[in-house]
Write a protein that binds this DNA or RNA. Structure first.
Lengths: 306, 306
DNA sequence: CATTCTTACGTACTGCGTAAGAATG
DNA sequence: CATTCTTACGCAGTACGTAAGAATG
């Protein structure tokens, strides 16, 4: 059976001159596009693309088909717009992110998002992870990008990358040799941390307990910005994402402590409501996966891509 | 995503005035058709059919859509015929059946098959079950309808109905009261049976062994016709499908023996090669399932539907 | 009460994605 | 050697079929 998916595949492969760009356009993989083309060739008992060259060169049958495909797809499009066009389209997407996200690649994400879906209005909100989870459940936001700590049956979480965390303090606050510090050394210092409403806060708590440690004095803040400020002033030791304080470290205002064992990285995820299966949402998640690689980001806390 | 399947559904529901006929046309179930229509209504955020009446009454949106669907489907059809029409189409189907099948509903099947697919030339072959299996594997036939005893990984077997078997003999050969006979009584008689190349022969063998019986004298034939003839002449006792000897029994030439426990019915199946996924083949299997209900057939060994 | 459609639920299978392999320039 | 496409394989989500339920005339 000839399907629209197959027609889309051949059409965009020809338009964009390759399987990979076509796959991206169609929100799928090269592999899938390849299969759909092969299905077409099986259906028509004839090769449609000439693989001997690199570029997408059509055979004569291929040309016929692509022309027809263009027509069919255009008609479908018209049909959909004629009736569905009036439908209540979710043109506003509310995106919830945590502070680190906001400080790192949110600008890049929003930029690309706008380029790809100019008709969509984007409303980013910065909240703690726990708050984001509640809002997602209550449909007050549509997408959340946060540490993958807040799992739920009703959610669909897609991993987007890991956030490295490192112990930091005001230079000189923690006296140490060149050798790595032991975790126990931290017990004598005031530790600045995020509370259990934060994904990284939860991670830290688990990690500390799993090493049978009891923190000395613990100062809890709900804001990463506040934590950074407190750490800069020498108030205590905290674990911060290097990605967010790169510039500050380079200026010598913060010292990175080499503590063993190291803190585990915080795995981040783009999470949506499970039933939310619209094309737009899957596309947003995909884009997040492309953008949100913390390891490649080096930027200041004040934001702006690179 | 709008698919051709959905368009086909609404189109044929309107053309044929109901879900059930549409489902048959599309080789699927009412349930599936219902779902596809619902998908469409979800897609267009509007009811397309008015369910308050029985008949398929379209809403205004429905009318628009059906018109468009008709166009799109016609174009697809044209596209397929333009190129695929020249393709080497499997217009010859080789059907392998066993003797019972040939004697019972094969004529009906061929008739309906021809009505539904006039372009297909049908070549029926009558062989033993084991031979049919070998031929199917060797692609010497395309479809086999036989007792479901010859399973194979490479096959796809669809049940088509059960063939009742009963012990029979020349009237008076086996002396008995009105009470049911015990199986053991048969041991003293010559038993006419089909060999292990036959599905029912295998069934019989298993059944006999599972009751810890040792047959007295066993006469094996490879042909059901031969068995019937031998039984008629009083040469021995055999188990025959009533469906195939109905008339003979009614004429008083054969006596049905009420033996306990009774022989199990032989489950029949329409079997094709697993990789054979063409529309035509699935359609043939479906048709077989509709036709091949032994219980409803009453006809003479000389054949001809009813 | 028969017919027509819907709903619910378990299953099969298609089609997808990952990852490795081949081919090309 | 990098890029582009194919192939193999395991998994998941879809879509199907069965069977029971609701609605209609």
């Amino acid at each position: 059976m000839l399907t629209f998916k197959q027609l889309e595949a051949i059409y965009w492969v020809v338009q964009l001159g390759g399987f990979l760009p076509a796959a991206q356009k169609l929100n799928t993989t090269q592999s899938a596009v390849s299969k759909r083309i092969q299905e077409l060739e099986a259906l028509f008992h004839a090769p449609l693309l000439d693989r001997s060259q690199r570029s997408a060169r059509l055979t004569s049958r291929g040309e016929e088909l692509v022309a027809a495909a263009g027509r069919l797809l255009a008609e479908r499009e018209a049909l959909m717009q004629a009736t569905e066009g009036r439908a209540p389209r979710p043109r506003r997407v509310r995106i919830g992110v945590t502070e680190v996200t906001a400080m790192t690649w949110l600008p890049l994400y929003v930029e690309r998002l706008h380029a790809q879906h100019p008709e969509v209005s984007i409303a980013p909100e910065v909240e703690s992870g726990a708050m984001l989870r509640d809002k997602l459940l209550a449909s007050e936001i549509d997408l959340m990008i946060a540490a993958d700590t807040f799992r739920d049956e009703r959610f669909r979480a897609s991993p987007v990358g890991s956030l490295k965390l490192q112990w930091m303090c005001k230079p000189g606050l923690v006296v140490h040799t060149k050798a790595p510090l032991k975790v126990q050394a931290l017990q004598h210092h005031r530790i600045l941390t995020q509370g259990p409403q934060s994904g990284t806060g939860i991670l830290f708590q688990r990690w500390f307990e799993s090493h049978n440690l009891k923190p000395g004095e613990l100062v809890v803040s709900n804001s990463l910005i506040a934590l950074i400020g407190l750490t800069l002033s020498g108030f205590g030791v905290s674990y911060l994402p290097p990605a967010a304080v790169q510039a500050t470290v380079e200026q010598g205002l913060l010292e990175v402590l080499d503590v063993r064992p190291a803190l585990p990285a915080a795995r981040y995820a783009a999470t949506i409501r499970r039933e939310d299966r619209s094309t737009l949402m899957t596309s947003l998640v995909r884009l997040a996966q492309e953008c949100c690689d913390f390891t490649r980001l080096y930027q200041t806390a004040s934001g702006g891509p690179r």
